[in-house]
Structures are given as structure tokens and as C-alpha cells.
Write a protein that binds this DNA or RNA. Structure first.
Lengths: 232, 232
DNA sequence: AATATAGGGTGTATTTCTTACACTATTGCT
DNA sequence: AGCAATAGTGTAAGAAATACACCCTATATT
């Protein structure tokens, strides 16, 4: 790190891949750009990071603006710095991904920023062409999530607080794009002992209602400590 | 991403945690700073990223300067952007980690940059106090590596081209800070079928010489495709 | 009231992987 | 010849992963 430099302002953006899940599909929140570059293209929601805010705070700002929610699950993904990624010069972007319960979000489809015309959920497997390197960012975030859900309970961030085992299985199937065996899935999930069976059942369905479960964070934390169960 | 901005230069650094392995220990290459801030402290090698180079290229520049080597294994780790991490203002750093074979490196312990007094290998479990948030960066890179070596063959980057199974085991033991069972380790490693047994043996030891092995990248790539072996 | 529909919920046998564990073999050195 | 130091090897028990099919129950329909 070289020294003797003036007090400088940093110029970089934060972009966020916001995931939601309903109707058995993973969705991504995209914005339609209303300004150049890439006017009229779809892209990821993002902002320039102010010089007096952390990158995490900038992403929280993005999430609050588009979802009206605080405390959304988010993780840094990767920083993209190709020379050609932004036509106005080398602007790096720190990409994050976030996951939220679609049911509880009050999605702001007419956001305040003038550079956005509208926001909209898009099914992950049917995305429009995207501005900048945003397709690449989304691809990379899916890779990350696919890996991460197999050792971390982030999938629950996408489900309503109370959910059925079938919903949980459908979510894993959507993430991994792969059918799972119902009996084996349940056996395994329940053996982890991180789900709390409720005295409630699904409502409003025209067939036998399924039991509802909650993710039990307290129980999970005991197991999570041993998450790195590498071979001895 | 807001628009209508002037062509701006980006101001951020790249820092690199360079890992080596010998004498059964993981080592990190640190530099002693010769300029403020943190003059006389130890820290990670790093540079400001030029506005016409990618972040990867900046890290390659760091690696070349300190090791004289090109083509070193490196991965982006995380981008650190706390407001207080740099006393001269909010300078974010994109941290990488790299792994190299100590034997083949011609480490430049008197580097060219004036901000560095000298460079030196330090055992990971006996580090000096570090400048900036560099301790945090190192901790995070170990976490990453611990996880990654269990599903990716990056450990071989730290070994000489030809190595014994005991060396390989010692490396895993150093990374996980945990003793492994010799028979089980060998059984498992050999079953992966990514090692090539050579017709050569260790030399210069005063005991029964061990067989030498090579990592077989071609074989590995076949298996690696199936790396994400999630349950069906 | 009977029936249809749609998904809920459950067990077992087989195979594969993980773990625990101890002795003989080879080489260089004295 | 004997010592010191590490190399190299197999088996049994337990745990986890996989493959697989039928009955149950709530509602809607006639």
C-alpha cells in the first residue's frame, strides 16, 4: 500500500442480487434502467457507495429502497473490476446477494431513484438480457448459493416463517435444479433437528393439509458450531 | 448505478495473503512497512490498483514483485470497506489469497517498493501484530482455505511437484490444525484417484524413503466436474 | 352420501462411506 | 548387528446415503 496520498473519495458501486421464492420458482429482482449507459436495459439494483458509508450499509440502502425491509439476509459475493465492465471508465462493483421472504416484502416497484423506471421480479431461469456484467454476477451468485445451502441454513431466508416440508423441498429443488426424493429429504432434514414442528396446519388448500414447521435458530446454532465437520 | 458521472479514476488497493508451506508449517509472507501510516509495522503486501489494470492484474503484480513468479494460484477473498480501516480516508481493499511452492519461489526479501523495508515468511500460528485490518484478512483467508481444501485440490499448490503422502497429510493437518489418521487419509486420498504414483522415491532421508506422487490434473478434472455432488 | 382429486406422510433393505485401530518393512547410521 | 525413524498396509463396526411404493386425509364434485 503506497502512502503519502491525499484524502481521496472512493468511486465504486455496490450491486445486489435479490432472491425471492414463490410458486416453486426462484426469482430475482431486476430494475429497468432509465438512464445511460444501458438505458432501457434490465439490470441489478445498485448504487454508488458514498464515501462515508460502509459497503454493507450501501447494500442495506439498496435493499431498503426496493423492499421496504431492514434486516434482510445478505452476503458479499465478489468484486468485479474488469476494465470494460462499465463504459464510463473502470468502475468496480462489489456484488452482494440477498434473500428475502416474498410474502413479507412490500416490494416497491416504482422506486425513488430517477435512474430506474421500474423494478420487477424475474424467474431465474428466464432472465432478460442484462446491462453491464450483471448476468455474470447473477450466475456467480447462484453458484455460491448452491454450494452454501448444503452446509448453511440460508434457504430458510427465502421461505415464510411457517412452511411445510414440501415447500422446503421444492426450494432445494429449485436451487439445485434437481428433483429430490421425498422420503430421503424428510428423513435427512428432520434428523438435523433444526426444525420445530408446529401445532398448526396449512390452510386454504383443497387437499389434506400439511403440518407447518419453523426453523429453530437456537437449535441450529448448536449444530452450526460443528459445521466444519471435516474428517478427523 | 447512478449515471451522468465524469470519467473517474478508482482509488482502492489490492492486498494479498501469500501462503507457503514448509517444515510442516503454514507460512504467510509479510512485509515490514517503511512509511506512514503504520510505519515499522508488519502487514500484507499490497498496492493501489492502477486505473488501467484489472484487480487480478494488480495482484499478479504484487506476486511477481515478491516471489519472482508468474502463474501463482490466487483467488479473490473479500472486499473490506470499513470506514476506519485506513487512517487516510475510506480506502477499500480487495483481498486475495495465493498459494505457492516455497521450493520454487525465489523470494525477494528486499523488494523494490520504497514503502517496504523487507519481506519475510511468518508461521501462521505466530504472527506479529499487523497493520490496518490485516489480521482480520488473514483470519478470513484461513477460514476460506479450510473450507475450500475439502472440496478442491488447492492444497497441491503448496507442495512441491513431487511429494510424499506424508507431506500431503501434514499439509492437511496444518491447514485444519488437527491430526489425521494415516491409514484413513491414504485410503481416501488414493480412492479419489487424482494422484499419480511415480517410480521415484524420496532422497536424502535417513530412513526408509517414501514413494513420490504427483497431482494428476487431467484425472482431477473429470472428477471435478462432479464436484457438486449434492444429494439427489 | 359416494366418489374423485391432490397432495401428505411413512419404512426398510442395500450399498457406500467413515471410523477406529497396530503391526511389519525398509533405509541409513553407528 | 542393531538402532532409530518413518513407510506402508487391512479389517471390522457403525453411520450415512440411496432406492423405492403405498395408504391417508381434506376438500370439491356429483
Amino acid at each position: 500500500m503506497q502512502s503519502n496520498l491525499p484524502h481521496l473519495q472512493s468511486i465504486f458501486t455496490a450491486d445486489c442480487v435479490i432472491f425471492g421464492f414463490n410458486e416453486g420458482e426462484l426469482k430475482v429482482l431486476l430494475i429497468e434502467r432509465n438512464e445511460y449507459p444501458f438505458k432501457d436495459w434490465w439490470g441489478l439494483p445498485g448504487f454508488f457507495v458514498e464515501h462515508n458509508e460502509t459497503i454493507d450499509d450501501a447494500v442495506k440502502r439498496i435493499l431498503l429502497e426496493y423492499t421496504g425491509l431492514k434486516g434482510i439476509y445478505m452476503e458479499q459475493l465478489y468484486t468485479f473490476g474488469d476494465l470494460q465492465r462499465h463504459p464510463q471508465g473502470r468502475i468496480i462493483t462489489v456484488a452482494y446477494y440477498a434473500m428475502l421472504r416474498l410474502e413479507s416484502a412490500n416490494i416497491n416497484l416504482k422506486p425513488l431513484s430517477t435512474y430506474v423506471r421500474k423494478a420487477q421480479w424475474h424467474p431465474l431461469n428466464n432472465l432478460p438480457e442484462l446491462a453491464f456484467d450483471h448476468k455474470n454476477i447473477i450466475d456467480k451468485s447462484i453458484d455460491k448459493i448452491r454450494r452454501k445451502v448444503s452446509h448453511s441454513p440460508i434457504a430458510f431466508e427465502l421461505l415464510p416463517e411457517k412452511f411445510t416440508l414440501t415447500q422446503l423441498q421444492q426450494l432445494y429443488e429449485a436451487i439445485w435444479d434437481k428433483k429430490l426424493d421425498k422420503r430421503n429429504f424428510r428423513k435427512k432434514m428432520l434428523k438435523y433437528n433444526v426444525l420445530k414442528e408446529l401445532d398448526e396446519k396449512q390452510k386454504g388448500v383443497s387437499y389434506r393439509a400439511a403440518k407447518l414447521y419453523k426453523f429453530d435458530k437456537r437449535k441450529y446454532n448448536r449444530i452450526f458450531k460443528n459445521e466444519l465437520n471435516f474428517s478427523k
